[in-house]
Structures are given as C-alpha cells and as structure tokens.
Design a binder for these strands. Structure first.
Length: 1106
RNA sequence: UGUGAAAUAGAGAAGUGGUUACUCAUCAGUCUCAGAAACUGAGUUACACAGGUUCGAAUCCUGUUUUCACUACCA
C-alpha cells in the first residue's frame, strides 16, 4: 500500500478506475436539475496540446464537478471539430488522406486530455468529419434551403408556404427577406414560368441559396473566405493576400436574422466586450435614404441614348478589335469558319442571332490575335464552344491563356462544350442571359480597358440592386442618386455629393470635360488593393465628375465627386458630404477647397467644426433651433411627405459565403438540373465524401471534388464545393445531447431536457465567427420547431490566452559567439543578432549550455561569454508557438510534477479571463501544497495518523471559513482564489495539529474538483470509503461555526493603526467607549487630553480622534 | 478612430470604506559531513499619478497618465 505521495502511480490508477467504472456517464433522464457545461470545440491540430489549451477545460471540469456535487445532473462533453485546413494542406503535400491525419491527431489529443483527469462523458464524443455526424449537418443545410424568412412574423418558415402564396397572389404583397434584385410578379406570371425559372426565383428567398456574389478570394489557399476570416486584407489563416472576386457561391442568408441576433444579445449573460463586438459586426444604423436629382451639363454619353456602349465618341473604334498586322489573314480564317460551322456552333447561332436575346451577337469575330466563336461587343461577352480536342491537356492550357488575354482586354469569356449546347440548350441560354445582365452594368470597352472587370465588384449585394438609381429613359431630368445618411438633420450643410469609385452610374454622369480625369482616377482607385486602401486612410483623394445634384431641401446645385473613402458595399455607395459635422467629409472638403457650411450652434468659432457634432441647428431653414434628435425627426417627416426618399435601416452584416473550394469538408447535399440546384433525397443522406486521387483543385480550377468519379445524382452533377469549417461547429452542442441518435440530429426529449448551454467557456477569438453562426443556426432550428430555444449559450466566460515566454540569446554577427544578457550593453545593436532558443533548456533565464550544444548540430562549437559563470538569456512574451521555441507541453509538466499540480497551478496563475504568460515560477508552491496535504493524513514515516476525535471549534472555524470562501468564489467563477484558500486551510490545520477524520473528509470534498486524483486516493485509501468521491456531496457552509463571543478590535488613533484590544461582543458601543479610554495604550497617546471623538464600529474597529 | 478591460512589493496575485491575504523569488535559522528536501522565522514605508469626500480610502468621486485586447474610412 502506497503511503508516500507518488503521483504517477496514483493518477494512472484512478484514471483507469474511473474509466472502467464508467463513472462519468450521464443520462438524459433524471429528476435532478440539469446543468450543461461546454468547452469550445477544439480542432485537433498535429502539434497537440500546449499548456494554454487546457486552461478553459480545467475550469469547466472544476465547475462541472462542483455542480455535480451540488446535486445537479451535469453534462460536460468533449469532441472534435475535425474537418479543417491543416489536414487537407498536409494531404495535398503528401498525398495522405486527411482522414488518416485527423484520426492520428485526435488520438494524440485524447491521450493528452486523459492524462489531465477530465470528467468528460466519453461516450458522447463527436467528430464533425464522421458521416454519422455530418449527415445531420447536411440535413440542417437542407432545412435552410427549404426555408425563407417572413418579415411579418420575424421567423423562418417553410418555403412551400411561400410557393402557395406565389400561386395565389404573386409576390407583390409578400414581406419576406430576399435579394434586392428579386423581380416582382403576379400569380399568373408565376404560373407561366418554367420550372427552371421558378427555381431561379426561389433562390432569391431561400436561407441557403446560390448567388453570384463578390467574395473574398484567397489565391494562395485556393478558397473563398468568410468576412470574419479576413483580417486587414489578409487571410486569417496563413496571412495570404485576399482579393475581391465575383463567383457563384452558396450563401447563408444570415442577414435575415440581423435584428434577432442583435435584440437577443440582451438576454445573454456574456461579457460586454463580446456583445459589443457582435453589435458592431452586425452594425445596425438607422437613417434615411434621400434622392438627389442629377444635372449633367455636357454628358460624355449622348443624351437620350441609354446605350452605354456609345459612351465612346467614335463608334468605329469599337469594332477594330483585331491585331491590325494580322487582320487580313485572320479575316479570311474567320470567313472560312463562318461558312463551315460545327453542328453545335450552328445550333447556338440559331438561338442567339438577330438579337433574340435583345443583344447583337457576331460570330467568328477577330479579337487581337484570335478568332472567337461568338461575341457581343456591346456587352464585352465572348462565348466559346469547345470541341472534343479541347479536353487534351495542351489545348486546355492554350485555351486558358487565350481566356486570360481576352479577359485582360476587358472581355468576359464563357465556355460550353458541344454537348452542353446540343443537349442542354436552355441552361446554356440562361447562363448567357445572366452573364449579359452582369456585363451590362459594366462600362464600355473602349478607354476603360485598363480596369479589370473583376475589380468592378466590391461590396456584395450591390450588383443588380442599384441599376435603378438612374431611371433611364426619362432623359436627364429624372435621373436620381440615392444617398444614405444617419444625419439627415445636417441636410442644409451638404456642400457636395460623393460616389464610390465602383459606382456604375459614373460613366453616365461624367462630363466630356472631366472624362479623362475621372477615368484615370477610377482605374487608379480600383487597382489599389484592399490593403493599400485601408492603410492609407488619411490620404485624401477624389475627382470631380463635372455633374451636379440638386439638394431636395433647398434646390441648391452641388457638385458630384468620386472618392475612395466611400465604400461601395455600405449603404448606397453614395454619401452626402457634410464637411461641418463629419470628419472624413471635412478632410475632403479642406483638401479640395469645397465650401463648409455650419449647421450646428457653437461651431462658428471652431477651427474644426466637426468637434461638435450635436446641438441646436442653425442655418437650416425650418430646422433652425431644433435639437439634433428633433431635427432628425422633422427632416425625415419632410422627406416622407414630399416623397424625397424614405427612412432606412442599414446593416453592416453581409450574407455569409458558405462554399469552400476544398475537399476536407461536408459535401453539399445538392445536385443540378438545368443549372438549378435541387436537394438530394433526405433518405439518401449522408452524402458521403467520395475518395479522390489527388486533393488539389483540377487544372481548370474546379474544386477537388470535381475529380470524384460518378459524382452525380439522378443524372445531375452533384455540387463540388464543400461546406466551411463553421458548418459543423454551428450546432455541435446539440449533438452532444443525443449523439447516438440515428433518427434525428437530437431527440426533442433530449434537447428539451438539456436546453441551453448553462456555461460556455472559450476565447474571444470566436466573437464574430462561430458565436454568430451558431446563434443563427440555433435561432433557425427554433423557428422551424426542431428545438424549443432560440439562443444556444446562456452564459459565457472568455478565458484569456496563455502566452508563451520566449527565451532569447544574442550572437555576435558573423561569429559563433553568444553573449550573456548583461554583456549586451557593451555592443551596438547592429553587431548583435537575436535568436530564439528552446525554453525547455532554459531555467530561470539560465541556459543549460550542454543541452544547447546538443539542441542543434551547429551549436556544438559555439563560444559563450558568461557572467558569474552563468549564461543568462533574455526573455520576451509572445504567442505560444513552435516557431518561437516557447511551447510547453502539459505532458512534460505532468511528468515532472503531477496532473493535480498542473490543474491547481493553471488556475492559480490568475483570473481565468486574463491574458498571462506561462511561467513555471510558482508551480513548486502548488506541488508543495499537495505534499503538505498528504502529511495531514500520513506522517513522516508514511503511516496513517488519523483520529476519530470530535473537532474543536477552532478546527471547525477554519474549515467553514474555507468552505464559505470557496463556495462564494466558485459561484462567481473565480477559479484562482480558492487555491490560496486551500493553502491557508492546510497551513492552519498543520498549526492546529489536526488529523481528525471529520475535518479532513470535508476538506477533501471541498478540494476534489481541483485535484481529483489525490483526493480520490486519500478518500478511499486513507479514509476507507468504498465509493468514489466523485459522487460525494459538496460541503455546506454553516454560519454557526464562525460565531465568536469576543472580538479583537483594531485600535486606531487618528486613523492610524496602533494596536488591538479584545472586547466581548455583547458590549454596547457606549460601554466600549468608556472602557477604551481607560486602556493603558490609549492613555499614553492621549497624554491627559480628552479625545475629540471616539468612533466605535461593532465588530469592525475603534478609532480615536485626538 | 472607437469600444472594452486593467494598473497592488523583485514576479504572479487576493482584497468593493476599517487588522492588507496567498505562491514564487530573497535572507536567516533547524536538520545534515555537505547539498537537496522538509520545517521555523524575517524583511522590503506595494496599492499608477494629482485632487476631493470621510474619524478612517487600495476600495467612493473628479481629472490625468500608462498598458493590453478588439475594432478601424460604416456616412
């Protein structure tokens, strides 16, 4: 029998015992109250855990044990978010299947977790990459696809309800969330539409939908990123540049839930910081849209002609698209081709000739060095039909090059195969039509050639929406620009209008005189990367269009400018410039010498009037004298009454890109028919991720799944993109409740019982990603009646990260000589080179030189300049990462001390929420505490020294003081403070020489959440219990043990501590006052005088003022 | 730029108006041939700064400074 504290042995023994006895298993049915504790979903990386990871897990483990001992039925599960990039990247590099990598990593993770002694119910473990799990991710996706959001009831509903409505009344009266370019139709029109057309329209409403959207494309990763995955124009993962690109994408209509996600925040017990981040991310602003009429004195476009292509003054040039030198030769080839078309070319020509699509097409037209099959010069759209030989690799490369050149010339190229044209002409035509509308919004080919078409994108939801901003056909008189503002009250301070450089109306309202300037500016602005744009915020740039707008409030003519401080993606892409109350407008107006009109009282004498943004209105006609708030109200009334615009709420939140051009993710349960997406039968789920031979994208840029054989369903191609990482993690907490269920994602009984997560612990890094998406899906599942609560996480604590403490060495440049830290000052900075060294061979900043020599081969002959015979390293706090050699593995800490020590110390380090560097200084104290605890049970010889005597009041007092403190601390989630209270109790019991069973068994029950191993050992082997301490009750504090009959008063003279006097508590204030003056010590200070005042606070203090 | 959090001994860190914890590091002692461990004890005018309220302020109020995190042209 072990009587020494031998942690390794003890910990192994009990971990095995707990597992074998299935002690942590939790039932879904219980008459106890439930409590759900959750950790954030870990991705099992190849690097394994470092000491920072378990921080939150230890806290939740302690808390869930505490709750369990208090009589709750506690769910505390763990699983793995096992789809993800690193495994896939590894697969691309090595060819190893990501599933194998993932499995290995999970095994390492689990092994490490097990050593720390967590109380996870391992039977409930889940992995997102497991088909039994992702079948339900796919199922939820299908529910989203089959749902729309009804604005009237602010809830998602079945799409069939919408279809019924279409059939009865069309969509005129429907108030549902949809794309801005959704057409309006009558019931009769709806019924006359083809199946494909109807599906196309439904996509405008579905919560999971497909759309051409401008997305964050990361070429280095070969994938699309969600907004929250982009930081400073670089990818969050890897830091690669990200560009805006228009692509067909699966999207999630999270914007439908903007208001709900915002309002529900009030019901959540989360840190203000995270709530604030979410509020900002959603970015609701209430304002007003206001229309400005346009006056273009000398349009570069001929009046009356809505045809954008005529923007060029010399139509002729348009057609001279060929390389002149080769023109004769090419012309002849083209003619020959025209005479001998292939079958498919002839067929397609028959469908698009003579403006059947309202667009003039030419065939076999010469562009540069090439002859293209079909072209619409007006729309810059090239259509190519590929024959069989196009499948050969060489030809493919040639085609790609050709496409690229054409794109650089400003053309968009779409390709079809013979097969597409002959067998699927309808979807071919649909695609052409679609591309025509998109290309339509572009500028003419001439002159603007330098601007790549792709760059005309930024800002999703922008594309089709604003085409109406120029009401074409009505001539110039009726043309309008709509600006969004939150400060309509400052309307009389407007001195100009500004457009985003991407705004499509720009060519139309540019004057002849300004055309050159404008073109130059727009091209420059568009070619700037997102990064440049963001980093050069202070630089003012812009250009005058030559046109004017009319302020609808006072009919004043104001200039229309273009500036890149206006974002195309927010509001309408048009800003009314009010230099007197907006900083950016002020800077802009100063720079370009535009007038500044004061509209707020008190700004008259200010150099920068924007320093006072609110107050009484001046110079504002009928708004004069009103307060900001009243003025806004009155101005909006005016706008509405005169039909000048409308009140409008704007959100910053965008719909979320859901497609990833990647292999290692959930396949989308969708296939295509006539170019439209349809769901795979629910009964056929899961749609298993197919095996493929290589994990790269295909040579023509298709996602890896395009390599899969027979990737079809009912003869239709199955979607080749996969779901993003956040799909699986948006609902995982529900699966833990009922992870074995094969009928549904989790039974209603289980979700009703476990309900919301009562305590969620994790870092703030997920504030706007995971936490928002999970809320979105949970709200949705609730709307559709699958669960009965809207919000997933009731209470959340944000754990601070544990940072690494890197060790630094200094080497003289171009030598192999290292110098100790304090010698550094003898050298100039440029003579030294700073190097990171493995923290595991440095202790208290002192380098283990022998270990260093072995660490890397080129260190073998290194020289060292020492101080006091030691080599001292510098240190620096930074992220814990392999790269800085500052990773500390929990396994090593457990090996050196024990798991209980690790648990105790991670908590002892400081408040859970705080960021702190990992340091081993102080861990000795925690380890010593455990040894001292052991000594309360076993003496130095290792024999039991317990007694059955009744505890004394003093012993009970220190025990209950501790129980009180620890309980209060845990109730407010303070995990570090109980540790010192345990230490104090131990010291006090040692001092009292207390080895009484009654006291010690309470102590163990108090302690076990922190240190389960040693507690279990002492509980069973020293105290002789036969059941696990896990099932014991948490000790209950009893006030009566703290009651005293006397109090040792601190004595103050003039507020300064001078000593102590003891009085019994039954004495009254007056009695104490009398007694205290008689006191010897007080007499000494009084020196015969009478005190001015005596303050007696019972059971607190006595203060005498002299 | 905005928002949030914070500042207590050499280091980490408790303390929401009244006796300033706890751990490490430091120093001394006991034990030992010695060291380690263990045990006993000690010390450092520690409450970011400047005012104010109070018999009494680390704690409440006002202002200032600094640090960290997130955010960043959102009209």
């Amino acid at each position: 029998m072990s009587t020494e504290y031998t942690p390794k042995e003890i910990e192994n023994k009990w971990q095995k015992y707990w597992q074998e006895n299935n002690i942590y298993h939790v039932e879904n049915q219980s008459n106890k109250q439930k409590y759900y504790v959750l950790d954030m979903f870990p991705y099992p990386s190849g690097a394994g855990l470092h000491v920072g990871h378990p921080l939150g897990y230890i806290a939740t483990d302690i808390f869930s044990r505490y709750k369990k001992m208090q009589g709750f039925n506690v769910l505390h599960p763990m699983g793995f978010d096992s789809f993800g990039l690193p495994a896939e990247q590894y697969a691309i590099e090595t060819g190893q299947h990501p599933a194998i990598t993932t499995e290995k990593n999970i095994a390492t993770f689990k092994n490490q977790l097990a050593k720390i002694g967590f109380n996870h119910d391992t039977k409930r473990e889940i992995q997102t990459s497991n088909p039994q799990y992702y079948t339900w991710t796919q199922w939820i996706f299908q529910q989203l696809f089959n749902s729309y959001f009804d604005n009237k009831i602010q809830k998602a509903d079945d799409i069939s309800i919408l279809i019924d409505n279409f059939n009865q009344n069309g969509n005129q009266d429907i108030d549902a969330v949809c794309d801005e370019n959704t057409p309006i139709f009558l019931a009769s029109e709806w019924k006359n539409k083809s199946e494909t057309e109807q599906q196309q329209i439904l996509l405008h409403y579905r919560l999971a939908f497909i759309a051409e959207a401008s997305v964050n494309w990361c070429p280095a990763l070969g994938m699309v990123l969600a907004n929250d995955e982009v930081k400073d124009g670089l990818s969050e993962r890897g830091g690669h540049p990200v560009e805006r690109k228009k692509m067909k994408q699966w999207m999630m209509r999270i914007t439908a839930y903007s208001d709900r996600l915002l309002d529900n925040l009030q019901t959540l017990d989360w840190s203000e910081a995270v709530k604030e981040m979410q509020r900002n991310w959603i970015g609701k602003s209430m304002g007003c849209e206001i229309d400005f009429e346009i006056v273009c004195p000398t349009p570069a476009l001929p009046e009356g002609e809505g045809d954008l292509s005529s923007f060029s003054s010399e139509k002729e040039i348009l057609f001279r698209t060929a390389n002149l030198e080769k023109w004769q030769y090419l012309k002849q080839n083209g003619r020959n081709n025209r005479k001998n078309p292939t079958e498919s070319e002839e067929f397609l020509w028959s469908k698009i000739r003579k403006e059947q699509l309202n667009v003039k097409f030419r065939r076999q037209h010469t562009i540069d060095d090439f002859i293209v099959d079909f072209i619409s010069l007006k729309n810059n759209l090239v259509i190519e039909i590929d024959g069989e030989y196009h499948l050969e690799k060489e030809q493919k490369e040639y085609d790609e090059m050709r496409t690229q050149i054409l794109q650089e010339k400003g053309f968009k190229v779409i390709r079809f195969t013979n097969n597409d044209v002959l067998n699927n002409i309808n979807s071919v035509l649909d695609l052409i039509k679609q591309n025509l509308t998109e290309q339509n919004s572009l500028t003419s080919g001439e002159g603007w050639g330098g601007a790549k078409q792709n760059s005309l994108t930024s800002g999703e939801g922008w594309g089709g929406a604003k085409q109406n901003s120029l009401t074409s056909g009505e001539g110039w008189g009726g043309a309008k620009l709509t600006a969004f503002t939150t400060r309509i009250d400052t309307i009389f301070g407007v001195s100009y209008l500004v457009l985003a450089p991407e705004h499509e109306i720009i060519p139309t309202l540019t004057t002849k005189e300004q055309k050159n300037e404008v073109e130059k500016y727009v091209i420059w602005a568009k070619n700037r990367s997102e990064r440049d744009r963001q980093s050069e915020v202070k630089n003012v740039s812009g250009v005058f269009t030559g046109s004017y707008a009319i302020n609808p409030f006072n009919q004043e003519k104001i200039q229309i400018w273009i500036a890149d401080y206006v974002l195309a993606g927010y509001g309408t892409g048009v800003v009314m410039g009010v230099p007197s109350s907006d900083d950016r407008d002020f800077r802009f107006a100063k720079h370009f010498n535009l007038s500044i009109r004061l509209v707020i009282e008190g700004t008259e004498k200010m150099e920068n009037p924007t320093e006072k943004k609110y107050g009484k209105m001046i110079n504002s006609d009928f708004l004069n004298g009103l307060d900001t708030k009243e003025a806004i109200k009155k101005a909006i009334e005016f706008v509405e009454k005169n039909n000048l615009g409308k009140p409008k709420i704007n959100f910053r939140l965008r719909d979320a890109a859901f497609s990833r051009q990647r292999y290692w993710g959930e396949p989308m349960p969708v296939y295509y028919k006539n170019g439209m997406p349809y769901l795979i039968d629910e009964k056929k789920l899961p749609l298993i991720l197919p095996e493929i031979n290589e994990y790269k994208p295909t040579s023509d840029g298709e996602p890896p799944l395009a390599r899969a054989k027979n990737w079809t369903y009912e003869n239709g191609q199955i979607e080749t993109t996969t779901m993003p990482g956040w799909a699986g993690s948006s609902w995982y907490f529900l699966r833990y409740m009922d992870n074995q269920n094969t009928e549904t994602f989790a039974s209603k009984q289980a979700t009703d019982y476990w309900n919301q997560v009562d305590l969620y612990v994790g870092g703030t890094e997920h504030a706007v990603g995971h936490l928002l998406y999970a809320r979105f899906w949970t709200n949705f599942l609730c709307d559709r009646g699958f669960i009965s609560f809207q919000e997933p996480f009731k209470k959340m604590i944000n754990q601070g990260m544990i940072q690494g403490q890197s060790a630094l060495m200094y080497r003289l440049k171009n030598t192999n000589t290292f110098i100790s830290l304090s010698l550094k000052k003898n050298y100039k900075e440029e003579e030294l080179q700073e190097l990171h060294v493995d923290v595991n061979i440095v202790e208290n900043n002192i380098l283990d030189i022998e270990a260093f020599k072995k660490w890397r081969s080129d260190n073998q002959n290194a020289d060292f300049l020492l101080e006091d015979g030691k080599f001292i390293c510098g240190s620096q706090v930074e992220k814990m990462s392999k790269r800085w050699y500052n990773v500390v593995n929990p396994d090593d800490v457990i090996e050196k001390y024990s798991a209980d020590t690790l648990r105790l110390y991670e908590m002892f380090l400081g408040p859970l929420e705080q960021y702190k560097p990992w340091s081993m200084q102080g861990i000795d104290g925690c380890h010593k505490f455990l040894k001292r605890l052991w000594r309360l049970f076993y003496n130095n010889e290792g024999t039991l020294q317990l007694s059955n005597d009744t505890p004394t009041p003093a012993e009970l007092k220190v025990l209950h003081k501790c129980i009180k403190g620890v309980t209060e601390d845990l109730e407010r989630y303070s995990f570090n403070t109980p540790v010192s209270k345990f230490m104090i109790l131990t010291s006090e019991l040692i001092e009292l020489k207390c080895h009484k069973k009654q006291i010690l068994e309470s102590f163990l029950r108090l302690l076990v959440p922190y240190t389960p191993h040693i507690s279990e050992e002492l509980w069973q082997n020293a105290l002789g219990n036969t059941t696990s301490i896990y099932h014991a009750d948490f000790p209950i504090f009893d006030e009566k043990y703290l009651v005293e009959n006397s109090f040792d008063y601190p004595l103050q003279i003039n507020g300064k501590m001078k000593g102590n006097i003891t009085f019994t508590i039954d004495l009254s204030k007056e009695e104490i006052e009398k007694l205290v003056i008689e006191n010897e010590l007080v007499q000494k200070y009084l020196e015969g005088n009478t005190p001015k005042k005596i303050v007696v606070v019972p059971k607190k203090i006595i203060n005498i003022v002299i």
